[in-house]
Write a protein that binds this DNA or RNA. Sequence first.
DNA 1: CCAGATGTAGACAGAGTTGTCTACAATACG
DNA 2: CGTATTGTAGACAACTCTGTCTACATCTGG
Lengths: 190, 190
Amino acid sequence: MRTAGTHSEPQVPARERILLAAHALFYGNGIRATGIDRVIATAGVTKVTFYRHFPSKNDLVLAFLEYRHERWMAWFAQTLERYGGGVNALLPTLNEWFAAADFRGCAFINSVGELGDALPEVREVARRHKQDMTDAIAKLLPPSAMRERYARAVAVAVDGAVVHAQFGEADAALRALEIILEASWAQKGD
Amino acid sequence: MRTAGTHSEPQVPARERILLAAHALFYGNGIRATGIDRVIATAGVTKVTFYRHFPSKNDLVLAFLEYRHERWMAWFAQTLERYGGGVNALLPTLNEWFAAADFRGCAFINSVGELGDALPEVREVARRHKQDMTDAIAKLLPPSAMRERYARAVAVAVDGAVVHAQFGEADAALRALEIILEASWAQKGD
DNA sequence: CCAGATGTAGACAGAGTTGTCTACAATACG
DNA sequence: CGTATTGTAGACAACTCTGTCTACATCTGG
Protein backbone atom coordinates (compact mmCIF):
# COMPACT_ATOMS: atom_id res chain seq x y z
CA MET A 1 0.00 0.00 0.00
CA ARG A 2 1.54 3.23 -1.14
CA THR A 3 1.14 5.45 1.86
CA ALA A 4 0.86 8.79 0.12
CA GLY A 5 2.75 10.82 -2.42
CA THR A 6 5.36 11.40 0.19
CA HIS A 7 8.50 9.87 -1.12
CA SER A 8 7.84 10.50 -4.76
CA GLU A 9 8.29 14.26 -4.18
CA PRO A 10 10.33 14.93 -1.06
CA GLN A 11 10.89 18.39 -2.55
CA VAL A 12 12.02 19.65 0.79
CA PRO A 13 13.89 17.13 2.93
CA ALA A 14 12.45 16.27 6.32
CA ARG A 15 15.08 18.02 8.36
CA GLU A 16 14.43 21.30 6.63
CA ARG A 17 10.65 20.97 6.90
CA ILE A 18 11.08 20.42 10.64
CA LEU A 19 13.28 23.49 10.92
CA LEU A 20 10.79 25.58 8.97
CA ALA A 21 7.93 24.45 11.17
CA ALA A 22 9.94 25.01 14.33
CA HIS A 23 10.80 28.50 13.18
CA ALA A 24 7.20 29.47 12.55
CA LEU A 25 5.95 27.98 15.82
CA PHE A 26 8.82 28.83 18.18
CA TYR A 27 9.10 32.39 16.96
CA GLY A 28 5.36 32.91 16.63
CA ASN A 29 4.14 31.31 19.86
CA GLY A 30 7.18 30.82 22.05
CA ILE A 31 9.36 27.80 22.64
CA ARG A 32 7.86 26.46 25.85
CA ALA A 33 4.39 27.08 24.49
CA THR A 34 5.11 24.83 21.52
CA GLY A 35 5.00 21.08 21.99
CA ILE A 36 7.06 18.72 19.89
CA ASP A 37 3.89 17.09 18.60
CA ARG A 38 2.82 20.38 17.11
CA VAL A 39 6.12 20.81 15.31
CA ILE A 40 5.89 17.25 14.02
CA ALA A 41 2.35 17.74 12.73
CA THR A 42 3.21 21.05 11.07
CA ALA A 43 6.33 19.67 9.43
CA GLY A 44 4.37 16.67 8.20
CA VAL A 45 6.80 14.07 9.50
CA THR A 46 6.51 11.33 12.07
CA LYS A 47 7.96 11.08 15.52
CA VAL A 48 10.68 8.64 14.55
CA THR A 49 11.80 10.82 11.68
CA PHE A 50 11.84 13.80 13.95
CA TYR A 51 13.84 12.15 16.71
CA ARG A 52 16.33 10.76 14.25
CA HIS A 53 17.18 14.29 13.20
CA PHE A 54 16.91 15.95 16.62
CA PRO A 55 17.52 13.63 19.57
CA SER A 56 15.79 16.04 21.95
CA LYS A 57 13.74 19.20 21.92
CA ASN A 58 16.76 21.12 23.16
CA ASP A 59 18.68 20.11 20.06
CA LEU A 60 15.86 21.46 17.95
CA VAL A 61 15.79 24.70 19.91
CA LEU A 62 19.49 25.26 19.29
CA ALA A 63 19.15 24.36 15.60
CA PHE A 64 16.21 26.75 15.36
CA LEU A 65 18.25 29.60 16.79
CA GLU A 66 21.11 28.86 14.40
CA TYR A 67 18.68 28.85 11.50
CA ARG A 68 17.01 32.04 12.67
CA HIS A 69 20.39 33.70 13.00
CA GLU A 70 21.40 32.96 9.40
CA ARG A 71 18.02 33.93 8.07
CA TRP A 72 17.69 37.18 9.98
CA MET A 73 21.25 38.34 9.39
CA ALA A 74 20.87 37.77 5.66
CA TRP A 75 17.60 39.70 5.61
CA PHE A 76 19.10 42.51 7.69
CA ALA A 77 22.22 43.00 5.54
CA GLN A 78 20.24 42.82 2.34
CA THR A 79 17.55 45.26 3.47
CA LEU A 80 20.09 47.76 4.78
CA GLU A 81 21.78 47.54 1.41
CA ARG A 82 18.50 48.14 -0.36
CA TYR A 83 18.04 51.37 1.62
CA GLY A 84 21.45 52.72 0.75
CA GLY A 85 23.65 51.14 3.38
CA GLY A 86 24.40 54.12 5.63
CA VAL A 87 23.13 54.90 9.12
CA ASN A 88 20.08 56.30 7.40
CA ALA A 89 19.17 52.85 6.17
CA LEU A 90 18.54 51.71 9.74
CA LEU A 91 15.16 53.32 10.37
CA PRO A 92 13.44 52.21 7.14
CA THR A 93 14.86 48.71 7.58
CA LEU A 94 13.54 48.37 11.10
CA ASN A 95 10.26 49.94 10.02
CA GLU A 96 9.80 47.12 7.53
CA TRP A 97 10.53 44.51 10.14
CA PHE A 98 8.21 45.98 12.77
CA ALA A 99 5.39 46.23 10.24
CA ALA A 100 5.65 42.59 9.18
CA ALA A 101 2.53 40.61 10.06
CA ASP A 102 4.48 37.97 11.95
CA PHE A 103 6.74 40.36 13.85
CA ARG A 104 7.06 39.26 17.43
CA GLY A 105 10.29 40.89 18.56
CA CYS A 106 13.79 39.46 18.54
CA ALA A 107 13.86 35.67 18.67
CA PHE A 108 17.03 35.76 20.75
CA ILE A 109 15.79 38.22 23.33
CA ASN A 110 12.61 36.18 23.65
CA SER A 111 14.49 32.90 23.96
CA VAL A 112 16.88 34.13 26.62
CA GLY A 113 13.94 35.56 28.57
CA GLU A 114 12.06 32.31 28.26
CA LEU A 115 14.81 29.76 28.80
CA GLY A 116 17.43 31.73 30.68
CA ASP A 117 19.32 29.26 32.80
CA ALA A 118 17.34 26.21 31.75
CA LEU A 119 19.40 25.91 28.57
CA PRO A 120 22.57 27.94 28.98
CA GLU A 121 23.73 27.47 25.37
CA VAL A 122 20.89 29.76 24.37
CA ARG A 123 22.58 32.68 26.02
CA GLU A 124 25.80 31.90 24.12
CA VAL A 125 24.04 31.79 20.78
CA ALA A 126 22.20 35.00 21.60
CA ARG A 127 25.43 36.73 22.50
CA ARG A 128 27.01 35.69 19.21
CA HIS A 129 23.93 36.92 17.37
CA LYS A 130 24.11 40.33 19.01
CA GLN A 131 27.80 40.55 18.22
CA ASP A 132 27.11 39.85 14.56
CA MET A 133 24.27 42.36 14.53
CA THR A 134 26.58 44.94 16.09
CA ASP A 135 29.21 44.21 13.44
CA ALA A 136 26.63 44.73 10.71
CA ILE A 137 25.71 48.06 12.29
CA ALA A 138 29.38 49.07 12.53
CA LYS A 139 29.61 48.78 8.77
CA LEU A 140 27.03 51.57 8.48
CA LEU A 141 29.07 54.00 10.53
CA PRO A 142 31.86 56.21 9.22
CA PRO A 143 35.33 54.90 10.06
CA SER A 144 36.78 56.24 13.28
CA ALA A 145 38.65 55.03 16.32
CA MET A 146 35.36 54.90 18.18
CA ARG A 147 33.38 53.01 15.56
CA GLU A 148 33.11 49.78 17.53
CA ARG A 149 31.89 51.58 20.60
CA TYR A 150 29.41 53.66 18.66
CA ALA A 151 28.13 50.56 16.93
CA ARG A 152 27.49 49.00 20.31
CA ALA A 153 25.57 52.08 21.40
CA VAL A 154 23.41 51.93 18.28
CA ALA A 155 22.86 48.20 18.77
CA VAL A 156 21.63 48.78 22.32
CA ALA A 157 19.25 51.47 21.11
CA VAL A 158 18.01 49.22 18.31
CA ASP A 159 17.26 46.41 20.75
CA GLY A 160 15.37 48.83 22.94
CA ALA A 161 13.32 49.86 19.92
CA VAL A 162 12.68 46.22 19.09
CA VAL A 163 11.16 45.42 22.45
CA HIS A 164 9.09 48.59 22.47
CA ALA A 165 7.82 47.70 19.01
CA GLN A 166 6.93 44.28 20.35
CA PHE A 167 4.82 46.01 22.99
CA GLY A 168 2.81 47.51 20.17
CA GLU A 169 4.56 50.89 20.11
CA ALA A 170 6.45 50.54 16.86
CA ASP A 171 5.97 54.16 15.79
CA ALA A 172 7.03 55.66 19.10
CA ALA A 173 9.99 53.26 19.17
CA LEU A 174 11.18 54.41 15.78
CA ARG A 175 10.80 58.08 16.69
CA ALA A 176 12.82 57.45 19.84
CA LEU A 177 15.52 55.69 17.87
CA GLU A 178 15.55 58.57 15.41
CA ILE A 179 16.32 61.03 18.19
CA ILE A 180 19.21 58.87 19.35
CA LEU A 181 20.59 58.49 15.84
CA GLU A 182 20.55 62.22 15.30
CA ALA A 183 23.35 62.57 17.80
CA SER A 184 26.51 63.81 16.15
CA TRP A 185 28.59 60.75 16.99
CA ALA A 186 26.27 58.52 15.05
CA GLN A 187 26.38 60.77 12.02
CA LYS A 188 29.92 61.90 11.53
CA GLY A 189 31.95 59.40 13.53
CA ASP A 190 34.49 60.35 16.18
CA MET B 1 -4.73 17.59 66.60
CA ARG B 2 -3.07 20.96 66.21
CA THR B 3 -1.75 20.80 62.72
CA ALA B 4 1.25 23.10 63.13
CA GLY B 5 1.97 26.58 64.35
CA THR B 6 0.28 27.87 61.29
CA HIS B 7 -2.59 29.91 62.48
CA SER B 8 -1.08 31.07 65.72
CA GLU B 9 1.41 33.26 63.78
CA PRO B 10 0.14 34.04 60.32
CA GLN B 11 2.68 36.89 60.35
CA VAL B 12 2.33 37.24 56.63
CA PRO B 13 -1.14 36.50 55.25
CA ALA B 14 -1.44 33.71 52.74
CA ARG B 15 -2.19 35.93 49.78
CA GLU B 16 1.00 37.86 50.27
CA ARG B 17 3.11 34.75 50.79
CA ILE B 18 1.77 33.42 47.50
CA LEU B 19 2.60 36.67 45.75
CA LEU B 20 6.12 36.67 47.20
CA ALA B 21 6.70 33.10 46.08
CA ALA B 22 5.27 33.78 42.64
CA HIS B 23 7.53 36.77 42.29
CA ALA B 24 10.67 34.84 43.12
CA LEU B 25 9.77 31.90 40.87
CA PHE B 26 8.17 33.67 37.92
CA TYR B 27 10.86 36.30 37.71
CA GLY B 28 13.70 33.93 38.44
CA ASN B 29 12.71 30.95 36.29
CA GLY B 30 10.02 32.17 33.93
CA ILE B 31 6.25 31.92 34.10
CA ARG B 32 5.64 28.91 31.91
CA ALA B 33 8.55 27.12 33.53
CA THR B 34 6.92 27.48 36.94
CA GLY B 35 4.10 25.14 37.90
CA ILE B 36 1.40 26.16 40.32
CA ASP B 37 2.40 23.32 42.63
CA ARG B 38 5.83 24.86 42.98
CA VAL B 39 4.38 28.24 43.92
CA ILE B 40 2.09 26.56 46.44
CA ALA B 41 4.92 24.63 48.04
CA THR B 42 7.18 27.69 48.21
CA ALA B 43 4.43 29.86 49.68
CA GLY B 44 3.65 27.18 52.24
CA VAL B 45 -0.08 27.12 51.59
CA THR B 46 -2.42 24.47 50.29
CA LYS B 47 -4.14 24.17 46.99
CA VAL B 48 -7.52 25.21 48.28
CA THR B 49 -6.09 28.31 49.92
CA PHE B 50 -4.29 29.16 46.74
CA TYR B 51 -7.27 28.73 44.46
CA ARG B 52 -9.48 30.73 46.80
CA HIS B 53 -7.17 33.71 46.31
CA PHE B 54 -6.38 33.16 42.64
CA PRO B 55 -9.03 31.27 40.66
CA SER B 56 -6.53 30.44 37.91
CA LYS B 57 -2.86 30.67 37.14
CA ASN B 58 -3.58 33.54 34.79
CA ASP B 59 -5.01 35.55 37.67
CA LEU B 60 -1.82 34.94 39.59
CA VAL B 61 0.30 35.98 36.63
CA LEU B 62 -1.54 39.28 36.37
CA ALA B 63 -1.33 39.86 40.12
CA PHE B 64 2.37 39.07 39.98
CA LEU B 65 2.94 41.69 37.29
CA GLU B 66 0.97 44.27 39.25
CA TYR B 67 3.03 43.48 42.34
CA ARG B 68 6.28 43.59 40.39
CA HIS B 69 5.30 46.92 38.92
CA GLU B 70 4.73 48.57 42.31
CA ARG B 71 7.86 47.06 43.76
CA TRP B 72 10.15 47.93 40.89
CA MET B 73 8.85 51.46 40.41
CA ALA B 74 9.33 52.20 44.10
CA TRP B 75 12.88 50.84 44.01
CA PHE B 76 13.65 52.78 40.82
CA ALA B 77 12.39 56.15 42.08
CA GLN B 78 14.09 55.72 45.41
CA THR B 79 17.44 54.66 43.98
CA LEU B 80 17.45 57.48 41.43
CA GLU B 81 16.79 59.84 44.30
CA ARG B 82 19.65 58.36 46.26
CA TYR B 83 22.01 59.09 43.37
CA GLY B 84 21.00 62.70 43.08
CA GLY B 85 17.95 62.52 40.87
CA GLY B 86 19.33 63.95 37.60
CA VAL B 87 20.09 62.18 34.34
CA ASN B 88 23.39 61.29 35.94
CA ALA B 89 21.61 59.12 38.47
CA LEU B 90 20.55 56.74 35.73
CA LEU B 91 23.81 54.89 35.15
CA PRO B 92 24.62 54.13 38.81
CA THR B 93 21.02 53.10 39.43
CA LEU B 94 21.01 50.65 36.55
CA ASN B 95 24.45 49.45 37.53
CA GLU B 96 23.07 48.43 40.92
CA TRP B 97 20.21 46.59 39.34
CA PHE B 98 22.33 44.73 36.80
CA ALA B 99 24.74 43.65 39.51
CA ALA B 100 22.04 42.20 41.74
CA ALA B 101 22.42 38.45 42.20
CA ASP B 102 18.87 37.76 41.07
CA PHE B 103 18.88 40.12 38.08
CA ARG B 104 17.21 38.46 35.14
CA GLY B 105 16.19 41.38 32.96
CA CYS B 106 12.88 43.20 32.89
CA ALA B 107 9.98 41.09 34.12
CA PHE B 108 7.65 42.78 31.64
CA ILE B 109 9.83 42.29 28.59
CA ASN B 110 10.28 38.66 29.59
CA SER B 111 6.58 38.13 30.17
CA VAL B 112 5.51 39.64 26.88
CA GLY B 113 8.11 37.56 25.08
CA GLU B 114 6.95 34.45 26.86
CA LEU B 115 3.17 34.89 26.82
CA GLY B 116 2.65 37.27 23.91
CA ASP B 117 -0.77 36.55 22.55
CA ALA B 118 -1.59 33.74 24.95
CA LEU B 119 -2.60 36.25 27.63
CA PRO B 120 -3.18 39.62 25.97
CA GLU B 121 -3.64 41.51 29.25
CA VAL B 122 0.07 41.02 29.84
CA ARG B 123 0.87 43.33 26.97
CA GLU B 124 -1.44 45.97 28.44
CA VAL B 125 0.19 45.80 31.84
CA ALA B 126 3.62 45.92 30.25
CA ARG B 127 2.70 48.98 28.24
CA ARG B 128 1.48 50.75 31.36
CA HIS B 129 4.68 49.80 33.14
CA LYS B 130 6.85 51.25 30.38
CA GLN B 131 4.78 54.41 30.38
CA ASP B 132 5.34 54.82 34.11
CA MET B 133 9.03 54.11 33.71
CA THR B 134 9.22 56.71 30.96
CA ASP B 135 7.45 59.22 33.20
CA ALA B 136 9.98 58.57 35.94
CA ILE B 137 12.77 59.17 33.46
CA ALA B 138 11.13 62.39 32.24
CA LYS B 139 11.43 63.75 35.77
CA LEU B 140 15.21 63.47 35.46
CA LEU B 141 15.36 65.61 32.34
CA PRO B 142 15.45 69.39 32.25
CA PRO B 143 12.10 70.96 31.37
CA SER B 144 11.62 71.64 27.69
CA ALA B 145 9.00 71.25 25.02
CA MET B 146 10.69 68.05 23.93
CA ARG B 147 10.99 66.49 27.37
CA GLU B 148 8.40 63.76 26.76
CA ARG B 149 10.00 62.76 23.50
CA TYR B 150 13.48 62.76 24.96
CA ALA B 151 12.30 60.69 27.89
CA ARG B 152 10.95 58.13 25.46
CA ALA B 153 14.30 58.01 23.69
CA VAL B 154 16.10 57.44 26.97
CA ALA B 155 13.59 54.77 27.96
CA VAL B 156 14.18 52.91 24.72
CA ALA B 157 17.93 53.07 25.26
CA VAL B 158 17.52 51.88 28.85
CA ASP B 159 15.48 48.89 27.76
CA GLY B 160 18.12 48.03 25.22
CA ALA B 161 20.72 48.15 27.96
CA VAL B 162 18.55 45.94 30.16
CA VAL B 163 18.35 43.15 27.61
CA HIS B 164 22.04 43.38 26.82
CA ALA B 165 22.80 43.16 30.53
CA GLN B 166 20.56 40.11 30.69
CA PHE B 167 22.74 38.55 28.00
CA GLY B 168 25.65 38.89 30.40
CA GLU B 169 27.08 42.08 28.94
CA ALA B 170 26.17 44.49 31.72
CA ASP B 171 29.36 46.52 31.46
CA ALA B 172 29.24 46.95 27.71
CA ALA B 173 25.54 47.82 27.99
CA LEU B 174 26.24 50.58 30.49
CA ARG B 175 29.05 52.01 28.39
CA ALA B 176 26.75 52.03 25.38
CA LEU B 177 24.05 53.79 27.37
CA GLU B 178 26.61 56.29 28.58
CA ILE B 179 27.47 57.24 25.00
CA ILE B 180 23.81 57.78 24.22
CA LEU B 181 23.25 59.86 27.33
CA GLU B 182 26.16 62.12 26.49
CA ALA B 183 24.18 63.50 23.56
CA SER B 184 23.38 67.13 24.12
CA TRP B 185 19.61 66.70 24.08
CA ALA B 186 19.77 64.40 27.06
CA GLN B 187 21.90 66.83 29.01
CA LYS B 188 20.55 70.27 28.44
CA GLY B 189 17.10 69.66 27.06
CA ASP B 190 15.81 71.08 23.79
C1' DC C 1 22.58 -5.91 -5.26
C1' DC C 2 22.17 -5.25 -0.83
C1' DA C 3 23.05 -2.46 3.37
C1' DG C 4 22.25 1.74 5.52
C1' DA C 5 19.97 5.91 5.65
C1' DT C 6 15.63 7.92 5.48
C1' DG C 7 10.95 7.66 5.40
C1' DT C 8 5.94 6.05 7.33
C1' DA C 9 1.88 5.06 11.26
C1' DG C 10 0.72 5.02 15.71
C1' DA C 11 0.79 2.96 20.54
C1' DC C 12 2.72 3.75 24.99
C1' DA C 13 5.34 4.95 29.36
C1' DG C 14 6.28 8.32 32.78
C1' DA C 15 6.23 12.68 34.27
C1' DG C 16 4.24 17.16 34.94
C1' DT C 17 0.34 20.39 34.18
C1' DT C 18 -4.04 22.90 36.00
C1' DG C 19 -7.88 22.74 38.57
C1' DT C 20 -11.67 20.21 41.73
C1' DC C 21 -13.20 17.88 45.69
C1' DT C 22 -14.01 16.09 50.54
C1' DA C 23 -13.50 16.94 55.29
C1' DC C 24 -12.05 19.51 59.04
C1' DA C 25 -10.01 23.63 62.28
C1' DA C 26 -9.45 28.31 63.85
C1' DT C 27 -10.44 33.10 63.76
C1' DA C 28 -12.90 37.44 63.40
C1' DC C 29 -16.94 40.12 63.35
C1' DG C 30 -21.72 41.64 63.96
C1' DC D 1 -22.88 33.29 70.07
C1' DG D 2 -22.82 31.79 65.80
C1' DT D 3 -21.82 32.53 60.93
C1' DA D 4 -18.65 33.83 57.22
C1' DT D 5 -13.91 33.85 56.13
C1' DT D 6 -9.66 31.97 55.98
C1' DG D 7 -6.92 28.39 56.89
C1' DT D 8 -5.25 23.06 56.75
C1' DA D 9 -4.11 18.01 54.31
C1' DG D 10 -4.08 15.47 50.45
C1' DA D 11 -6.48 12.52 46.84
C1' DC D 12 -7.93 12.76 42.17
C1' DA D 13 -9.46 13.74 37.23
C1' DA D 14 -8.21 15.11 32.79
C1' DC D 15 -4.83 16.70 30.04
C1' DT D 16 -0.29 17.66 27.77
C1' DC D 17 4.47 16.98 27.46
C1' DT D 18 8.83 14.47 25.97
C1' DG D 19 10.84 10.57 24.43
C1' DT D 20 10.78 5.26 23.17
C1' DC D 21 9.25 1.43 20.73
C1' DT D 22 7.53 -2.01 17.14
C1' DA D 23 6.96 -2.94 12.43
C1' DC D 24 7.29 -1.84 7.82
C1' DA D 25 8.54 0.84 3.09
C1' DT D 26 11.67 3.21 -0.17
C1' DC D 27 15.63 5.41 -1.92
C1' DT D 28 20.74 5.63 -2.69
C1' DG D 29 25.72 4.57 -2.80
C1' DG D 30 29.56 1.38 -2.72
